[in-house]
């Protein structure tokens, strides 16, 4: 029978882990986004500002934006993977609901979004 772990396996393991870690570091270093796009069936239907509260149901998916973060509040898809995807706020981050063909993606960069606003 073949071995359980060979040299090639370990090389593969390290390469994949490294690629994954680099990818994550890269994504986390992106700035907080300022606006997000809602994409339905491949077309951008709406651009929303992360500064404003937002809640809308699109194609069966309820997309919410609160305090600069976007998350999926409700969805009629069977697996509800999108609902467990957490909250996104950084450029490049996204949440997708494949069965409903809906995606929300945070756009480009703008530095210095405040942590809070007085008044």
């Amino acid at each position: 029978m073949k071995k359980l772990i060979t040299k090639k396996d370990l090389i593969l393991l390290f390469v994949v882990l490294l690629a994954g870690i680099v990818g994550i570091v890269f994504m986390n270093s992106a700035d907080e986004g300022k606006s997000a796009e809602i994409i339905v069936d491949g077309k951008t239907t709406e651009i929303i500002s992360l500064d404003e509260a937002y809640e809308k149901q699109i194609n069966g998916v309820v997309i919410c934006c609160e305090k600069g973060e976007i998350y999926i509040k409700e969805s009629n898809c069977p697996d509800k993977v999108c609902m467990r995807s957490g909250r996104i706020s950084k450029s490049g981050e996204s949440i997708i609901c494949a069965p409903n063909r809906v995606a929300v993606k945070i756009n480009g960069k703008k530095g210095n979004l405040p942590d809070a606003i007085t008044g």
């Binding site: 500064d51 404003e52 210095n112 979004l113 405040p114 942590d115 809070a116 606003i117 007085t118 008044g119």
Partner: peptide, 16 residues
């Protein structure tokens, strides 16, 4: 330090 936006009295809720 935190970045606190100072509200613009002539703008909306999220304008600083």
């Amino acid at each position: 330090s935190f970045s606190i936006g100072v509200r613009n009295p002539f703008g909306g809720q999220n304008d600083y």
